[in-house]
Design a protein around this nucleic acid. Structure first.
Lengths: 112, 112
DNA sequence: TGAGAGTTACTCACAAAAAAATGAGTGGTA
DNA sequence: TACCACTCATTTTTTTGTGAGTAACTCTCA
């Protein structure tokens, strides 16, 4: 009998069709994503403010992180043409809606 | 000013102390973990049964997956000395408790 | 009686792929 | 010169998948 192919990419495809939770976990499980969402919800809504609260994250990593969160529809950005330019980030409805679920996960994890 | 070191390992450490959700996401975000928990909860509670429902997952990956879920306290195993040997897996209380939260995540994700 | 094939449930070492981090540099001010 | 908010290419680290093999036992065929 011929062994099914199971490359990384085809496994991912299978998983997406087999499991409803996959999509959610894929966009939340990047290393800094949950923490960044929380910080933005607490008013750390600019690149430089996030740098302060995430001191071990480099500029480059922070930039990519914000791009990904935006691409996944969790945050939005507003460019304010001040001098120097200012960019504000904010949670979208979708981003805000996931925070209580993340809190439940944290409580689940803490218990015992 | 001295730049904080930000190696992979030290970032992980920082993250664990800074963010309560990190631990939960770390143990849930392995590729096959959520789906495997669901299958076990639905009675696919043996190595060979899981192989049937996860046809693209190799024996080796499945073995490692089960070891990790067990190490993280999400599943337990019972060895039954039949012939040939039989091993039953089951969700722990902790494993069972996370399923409703995963369902919420799936609903959140589905909503556009 | 015994050789070989088959079963379940794995493990180890290694390779490939993906995720995360780093080095260097950009554009538009003041 | 300095600040803010980035981007690109490359390296390092982690995660995921593969190839080969194990233990203990039963079953079949000669």
């Amino acid at each position: 009998m011929i062994k099914e192919t199971s490359s990384n990419a085809s496994n991912r495809k299978f998983l997406r069709s087999a499991c409803r939770i996959t999509g959610a976990l894929e966009i939340l499980s990047g290393r800094w994503k949950a923490l960044t969402l929380i910080h933005i919800s607490e008013g750390k809504n600019r690149f430089s403010l996030l740098k302060q609260v995430l001191p071990t994250v480099s500029d480059q990593v922070l930039g990519r992180l914000l791009r990904e969160l935006e691409a996944d529809g969790l945050i939005g950005k507003t460019i304010i043409p001040e001098v120097p330019v200012r960019v504000d980030y904010s949670l979208t409805d979708k981003g805000a809606a996931v925070l209580p679920i993340l809190e439940e996960l944290a409580e689940w994890y803490d218990k015992r």
